[in-house]
């Protein structure tokens, strides 16, 4: 591998990592406030992507304009998921896995029915070019996606740290009972979290659809990615998620550069298994810190 290829892989991996951060946040936020593992996470993103694709192919608008629309379109589902998660029996980690295994299957079926399992890509011409910068060729689509992801993550960071509802969400995520004792409306904070998380998923979906082909069963890989990032970063630590996301993007890009794209999927599962074994239930540490 030449130095140039290496640098190329590092940069494009880091750009992809910004997107991964955005993608993992919804999973991590929901885990934080509900202690529920959402296996339908990736399917929701794919659904957002399909909605974006459908709007894009119908309207011909620039994909970035469709980002907020897809985000808003998932909000009704946020309320439905919230209602379902509210009824999970203890221990939530396991019952949520079972429930969302079912929801994931449900979403895949709905997407299969609506879009017949065909591969779709938002192939907007405005995103296909590439820029030359200091000897590296940067894919314009990846740049735009990374910038958009960073903007959304930045806005979320401000929201979570500077506003009243943001503080309520963080407190609920840290310790639900203590937050309730302090007079924080934890139910409202939970609902807000679901709405925010699903909005993020819709946004991530449209951005994803500009990078990768969509297919109804493609969500699992995104879910596994989100779980890996959450294990690496812990729950509710936005900056750690960003670092972990970029790291994961780089690892993935290096794997692809070294061995070709076909091992990419395998790497994600391997990393998940290795991370679980290394930390023996590391997700739990996040919400008890």
């Amino acid at each position: 591998m030449s130095l140039n290829t290496l640098a190329q892989a590092l940069v494009s991996g880091a750009l992809l990592g910004c997107f991964y951060t955005l993608m993992a946040l919804a999973f991590s936020m929901i885990l934080g406030v509900t202690r529920a593992l959402n296996l339908s996470h990736g399917d929701l993103i794919i659904l957002g992507g399909y909605l974006g694709y459908w709007l894009w192919s119908g309207s011909g608008l620039h994909p970035l304009f469709l980002v907020p629309v897809a985000g808003a379109a998932l909000l009704p589902l946020a309320l439905l998921w919230h209602w379902l998660f509210h009824r999970l029996p203890e221990p939530r980690e396991l019952s949520s896995l079972v429930l969302t295994f079912g929801l994931s299957l449900l979403l895949q079926n709905i997407m299969l029915a609506l879009w017949r399992g065909e591969y779709r890509l938002i192939a907007s011409e405005s995103l296909t070019g590439s820029l030359a910068l200091a000897g590296l060729r940067l894919n314009q689509g990846r740049l735009v996606v990374a910038a958009a992801a960073l903007a959304v993550v930045g806005a979320l960071y401000l929201g979570l740290t500077r506003t009243r509802w943001g503080r309520a969400i963080r407190a609920t995520s840290l310790d639900r009972e203590a937050a309730a004792l302090l007079g924080i409306n934890v139910d409202e904070a939970t609902r807000t979290t679901f709405l925010l998380a699903f909005c993020l998923s819709g946004v991530a979906g449209v951005l994803f659809a500009t990078l990768h082909y969509l297919y109804p069963a493609g969500g699992i890989e995104l879910t596994l990615l989100a779980i890996v990032l959450t294990i690496w970063a812990g729950v509710g630590r936005l900056r750690s998620v960003l670092v972990a996301g970029i790291l994961l993007g780089v690892v993935e890009a290096l794997t692809v550069a070294w061995s070709g794209p076909r091992w990419r999927e395998l790497v994600v599962s391997l990393m998940l298994l290795a991370s679980l074994l290394a930390r023996s239930g590391g997700l739990a540490r996040g919400w008890s810190h």
């Binding site: 980690e93 999927e265 395998l266 599962s269 998940l272 679980l276 023996s280 239930g281």
Partner: peptide
């Protein structure tokens, strides 16, 4: 050393790994 939900996730990843290997 894994229990409950984390064991479940590990088996999920395990099946995906074998699918990847077979591919």
């Amino acid at each position: 050393r894994l229990r409950g939900a984390y064991l479940a996730l590990a088996t999920l990843a395990y099946a995906e790994i074998w699918r990847g290997i077979a591919h």
